[in-house]
Design a protein around this nucleic acid. Structure first.
Length: 726
RNA sequence: GGGCACAUAGCUCAGUGGUAGAGCGUCUCGUUGACAUCGAGAAGGCCAGAGGUUCGAUACCUCUUGUGCCCACCA
């Protein structure tokens, strides 16, 4: 009877072993590439997309951690000097609004009541708590990140990098202050960028008013007080009798005004009556039109969404309340022609606060994306060192040239399309949590530098930077830039940036911009975009739907390995994944299967002492080698889903169901040679399978491997990958 | 308005120029020595529709329909 190896007699219990295994890995020091054995030479790096310190990790984060850990563990076993650099993101506006929400709900107070300093203390406390939770969750997933290099977008080193970056771009003339029309969030009391806007479909009333000889259409009567320009298309025959620049006396909301006729080709003659009035201060399109013709605009709405004194009797009213009243007044004056009740349009809302965006003309800081500058050094194909270029050009060429490859490829088109429509990036925010803008004022003097100016009377700009400004530097600020560090030389550009397709523009493009400008290189060679993790019905997971599956719950119940596999198999790059608890449970079964394979093989006396002598056993090894090569090819092609699926199939339905079953009679038979050889084959298959499975299921494979006796055995995480070439 | 995808077994999805695969589910049978967190087997698909290219198309091209997403936004 075969000897019983006690350890394998019990069902596999991930909960018992996972924490201990992670500690073993951490203690080994091998997460840090500096400690890897000599065979690990060629650097390979991934920076972890830093989770926001706004709370806890969700399944999307878990998928990200699983994918990146697979790539890192795979390359580490292949002998690369792997660095996976972790960190967290202060997430400026997201974190600030979260804390403000807590303050208003639980303590009935506001940030203004607390004051800047006290409020920031609260935010930092909150951020610290979130950080600690996130770190523990990252560990639970088995992520082999180098904690010794952990970074935070708001820590000292990153703060320095942000200031240096700002200063350099300021000096190059790419960052400047400008009075332009911006997206004002009246609830958040800050400006936000174009990308932070969500358009919501809304049914509204569309009014037609008499405006002198014209009938004009509008959905926003409350902005019309200062409308002194009536715009028509130059070729519109209905209005041919009116000249561009002609003035007319018209009766309007608060009495007669002088209106000027403007002819502009951007007017759509098909829409409404083909005649409109414009409000340059509160509409981006109107603002541009006004700029074209040198028209004056007036401010009508304040930063709280209330009407200014220009509104006369309506002064101080909220725009929503004022709307009906103004229509009533116009109707009373006989100027209302009709109202269309079924007008559907898209209204811009703020991503964070949900408030309706009120365009305003304000002085803000911008990054110029189409302004030419001389790039001192460039490795980006198509952009020569010392040549004139633009940030937009850098972003385009980086991907166009193939220096950065986006997967799946279809997102490259999306990326180009976005770049073509890109406007200057507004980077100042009127919030407190974040990197304060490194600019100081004294009277008419302005000073920009990494260190504050000397002398009396200087006031620092109260605004902070868009969170994506600091995350744009992430691939190199984490490696010690602006210092010319060893890490920076070895690990930049990084190998892969793996993230959700939803932040392609926010983040990926900004990193390309920043790395291109500051280093003259791309930030990463590959962009791997994963999909969203949805529930089993394909809905987004959300609190209100109550369909959130918590990764920590799944790990507690089924183990990290099963959780990882459920997020990998069936998840092609860029495609959304549907996850259900059933699936996770299914992969727990698979973990148990692996456990029992090991138990069978080891209990039947297989060990490193056996030698393969039989022809059919050699064939088994060949079969395994083919599986190893196929797995390797899939991972190299970033098809982790296919790699994992192929392994799952081989291990369960080939190794367990067929090879082991066929081995039983041999192992119980009388042919000593056959028995010996088959033991060797099963042993080789077991050890090989553990290696192939390790990147996907690191815990159980490491645990089984620990129970096997082998000469020169190391931790499985640094053992050699079975397939040398594909 | 512009663009990008997707449509394959009940469900979730692979796939390839040579008339289809997996997992889960369903059904039947089996099994006290690796594992019931199991095994063997079965049923189940005009590969969305139409046309074209080809000796041959689920796969390549065009159109149609349906679904999802992104961008822009017209007062």
């Amino acid at each position: 009877m075969p000897e019983k190896t006690g350890k394998f007699n019990f069902p596999y219990d991930p909960k018992k072993v996972e924490h201990e295994i992670y500690t073993r890995w951490e203690k080994s020091g091998f997460f840090n590439p500096d400690n890897l054995p000599q065979r690990h030479t060629e650097p390979y790096s991934i920076v972890l997309p830093p989770p926001n310190v706004t709370g806890t990790l969700h399944m999307g984060h878990a998928a990200m951690l699983a994918i990146e850990d697979i790539l890192i563990r795979f390359e580490r076993m292949r002998g690369k000097r792997t660095l996976w650099l972790p960190g967290t993101d202060h997430a400026a506006i997201a974190t600030q609004s979260k804390v403000e929400e807590i303050l208003s709900k639980k303590e009935k107070t506001t940030r203004h009541a607390l004051g800047r300093e006290a409020f920031l203390k609260r935010v930092n406390e909150f951020a610290q708590e979130s950080h600690d939770t996130i770190v523990s969750q990252v560990k639970k997933m088995g992520s082999s990140v180098d904690w010794s290099r952990e970074a935070y977008t708001l820590d000292e080193a990153r703060h320095h990098a942000v200031y240096v970056a700002f200063k350099k771009m300021y000096d190059a003339g790419l960052i400047s202050q400008g009075k332009r029309i911006v997206n004002w969030d009246p609830k958040g009391q800050t400006v936000i960028s174009d990308d932070e806007i969500i358009y919501m479909e809304e049914k509204a009333k569309f009014y037609y008013f008499t405006y002198g000889p014209f009938t004009i259409g509008t959905a926003r009567p409350e902005t019309k007080f200062a409308d002194k320009y009536v715009v028509i298309h130059p070729d519109d025959v209905r209005y041919a009798e009116y000249e561009h620049g002609q003035t007319l006396e018209v009766e309007w909301i608060n009495g007669p005004i002088t209106a000027t006729v403007i002819k502009d080709a951007s007017v759509n003659p098909e829409f409404g009556t083909g005649a409109m009035t414009i409000t340059p201060w509160h509409s981006a399109v109107d603002f541009e039109m006004a700029e074209r013709h040198g028209l004056k605009g007036e401010r009508i709405i304040d930063t709280y969404g209330k009407l200014l004194p220009i509104a006369g009797e309506f002064t101080g009213m909220k725009i929503k309340d004022a709307r009906e009243k103004i229509v009533e007044k116009l109707a009373a004056k006989g100027l209302l022609v009709k109202a269309d009740e079924n007008y559907v349009h898209n209204v811009a809302t703020a991503e964070r606060t949900g408030a309706v965006i009120e365009p305003q003309v304000m002085k803000q800081w911008f990054v110029a994306v189409t302004k030419e500058f001389t790039i001192p050094y460039s490795e980006i194909p198509g952009i020569l060192s010392g040549s004139r270029t633009t940030l937009k050009d850098i972003m385009r060429k980086a991907v166009e040239s193939g220096a950065t490859r986006i997967m799946p490829e279809r997102f490259e088109k999306v990326y180009f399309h976005w770049i073509d429509n890109l406007r200057d990036w507004c980077i100042s925010r009127q919030i407190w949590f974040g990197h304060r803008i490194p600019v100081w004022y004294r009277g008419n003097e302005i000073y920009c530098d990494v260190i504050p100016p000397e002398g009396e009377g200087w006031e620092q700009d109260p605004d902070t930077l868009d969170t994506w400004f600091s995350s744009g530097l992430w691939t190199f600020s984490t490696l010690g830039w602006p210092e010319h560090t060893k890490d920076l030389v070895a690990y930049h550009p990084t190998a892969v940036l793996e993230t959700g397709y939803d932040i392609l523009f926010f983040w990926v493009a900004r990193m390309v911009l920043m790395s291109g400008f500051h280093l003259g290189t791309v930030p990463f060679k590959n962009v791997y975009l994963h999909g969203l993790v949805r529930d089993e019905k394909g809905r987004k997971m959300s609190k209100s739907l109550g369909n959130i599956i918590d990764p920590v719950d799944m790990i507690e119940k089924y183990g990290a390995d099963a959780t990882r596999l459920s997020l990998i198999i069936g998840a092609a790059p860029g495609n959304d994944t549907k996850l259900s608890e059933e699936r996770v449970r299914g992969y727990k079964h698979f973990a148990n299967k692996i456990w029992n394979i090991a138990r069978f093989v080891l209990e039947n006396g297989a060990s490193a002492d056996n030698v393969i002598t039989q022809e059919e056993d050699k064939k088994l090894i060949e079969e395994f080698d083919a599986v190893a090569r196929r797995t390797t090819a899939h991972i190299e092609a970033f098809r982790l889903d296919l790699a994992a699926d192929a392994l799952y199939h081989f291990v369960w339905h080939r190794f367990a169901d067929i090879l082991i079953e066929e081995s039983k009679p041999i192992l119980r038979g009388d042919d000593a040679n056959a028995k010996h050889s088959r033991r060797a084959a099963l042993f080789a298959l077991l050890v090989g399978s553990l290696k192939l499975l390790h990147p996907f299921m690191p815990f159980i494979t490491e645990e089984i491997y620990a129970g096997i006796s082998l000469p020169d055995k190391k931790l499985l995480m640094i053992e050699e990958w079975p397939a040398k070439q594909t």
